Amino acid sequence: MVMGWCLVAFVLTAYAQQAAVPTTYRLVQNVNYRPDSTDDYIRERCVLDVYYPEQTKDFPTVVWFHGGGITGGEKFIPQELKEKGIAVVAVNYRLSPKVKNPAYIDDAAAAIAWVFQHIGEYGGTADKIFATGHSAGGYLAAMVGLDKSWLRQYGVDADKLAGIIDFSGHAITHMTIRAEQGIKETQPIVDEYAPLFHVRGDAPPLVLVSGDRELELLGRYEESAYFYRMMKIAGHQHVYLYELDGFDHGAMAAPGFHILLHHVNELTKKSVK
């Protein structure tokens, strides 16, 4: 009987030690998601980083597009998303004025398509991919997720996205696209390059996060609120709107990551710390 208890104690101790082994994470940098191109600027800008948990399978993946008005910015892995049991794919894309619309939207679609095609090589799964980003990045995520034509050209159905999480992105046509046409930033336009133009009830779950309406850029909160309302009217059952009181356009991203992780958890039914 004593030996039996010793055996049980040994097994439990071994299990506890195994369970206590921390998850390790790996970062693979500057993977070209347009590898067949010979264009120097594409080869420079169309790269992504993959941050993922090793020895783990079927984890969710967040595709993160940086902000910068489509005229600047660099890919990065948000600190708030590290060591959370998920993969983060940080994407660079071509910038205006070196390229014009719709080159950067097409880059966003190509990057997401690359993730669908390759995340399984890192242990992830194609049914837990989220398109996300801040400001210009949120706009790109929403455009590619709502207008199915962008991913369709790469053989991917946008509705296979697990969700779209948009941090303070334009719902109207982006101001840089308007600037390329000589339209001032205070003149709102809703055309085929506006996520609002593509509202539909059968889109993936959509999470809209905005800073304080009095501190945000231009009418960014109001755009998000109208986007939310029109998605509801279109019959969308899983659209969410958050306003982060006291946070301006730049500062809202940090608390926004908690909202992102919550929805990744809920939409994949996976425990995310």
Rank of each mutant, 00 (worst) to 15 (best):
C6P: 00
L7W: 06
L7D: 03
V8M: 10
F10E: 07
F10M: 14
L12V: 14
L12G: 04
T13F: 13
A16I: 07
A16D: 04
Q17T: 12
Q18H: 07
A19G: 00
A20R: 10
P22F: 05
T24K: 14
V31F: 01
N32R: 08
N32I: 01
D36S: 15
T38M: 01
D39C: 02
D39P: 01
D40V: 07
D40L: 08
C46R: 09
C46N: 14
C46F: 02
V47A: 09
L48D: 09
L48N: 07
L48V: 07
Q55W: 02
T56C: 07
T56D: 02
K57A: 11
D58L: 01
P60E: 05
T61V: 15
T61N: 04
H66R: 09
H66D: 05
G67A: 13
G69M: 06
P78G: 04
A87H: 03
V88N: 08
A90C: 06
V91T: 08
N92I: 10
R94C: 08
R94W: 04
L95N: 01
S96D: 02
K100G: 02
Y104R: 11
I105S: 10
A108V: 05
F116C: 09
F116S: 12
F116E: 10
Q117M: 06
E121K: 10
Y122V: 03
G123L: 02
K128V: 01
K128D: 02
T132D: 15
G133P: 11
G138N: 08
L140S: 10
A141T: 09
V144H: 08
L146N: 05
L146H: 05
S149D: 07
S149N: 07
Y154K: 08
D157R: 11
D157E: 14
A158E: 12
K160H: 15
K160M: 15
L161A: 14
L161G: 15
D166T: 13
D166P: 06
S168A: 13
A171W: 06
T173W: 13
T173F: 13
I177R: 11
E180C: 07
Q181D: 10
G182R: 10
P188K: 13
P188Q: 12
V190C: 12
Y193I: 01
F197V: 02
H198G: 01
V199S: 04
A203G: 07
P204Q: 06
L206C: 04
V207K: 00
S210K: 01
R213K: 13
R213P: 12
R213F: 00
E214V: 03
L215R: 11
L215W: 04
R220N: 06
Y221K: 03
E222K: 03
E222F: 04
A225T: 03
Y228V: 07
R229K: 14
I233Q: 15
G235D: 03
H238M: 09
H238R: 15
H238N: 15
Y240M: 08
Y242V: 00
E243N: 12
G246C: 08
H249I: 05
H249W: 03
M252S: 07
M252K: 00
P255T: 08
F257K: 04
I259G: 05
I259V: 13
L260K: 04
H262R: 11
N265K: 13
N265L: 01
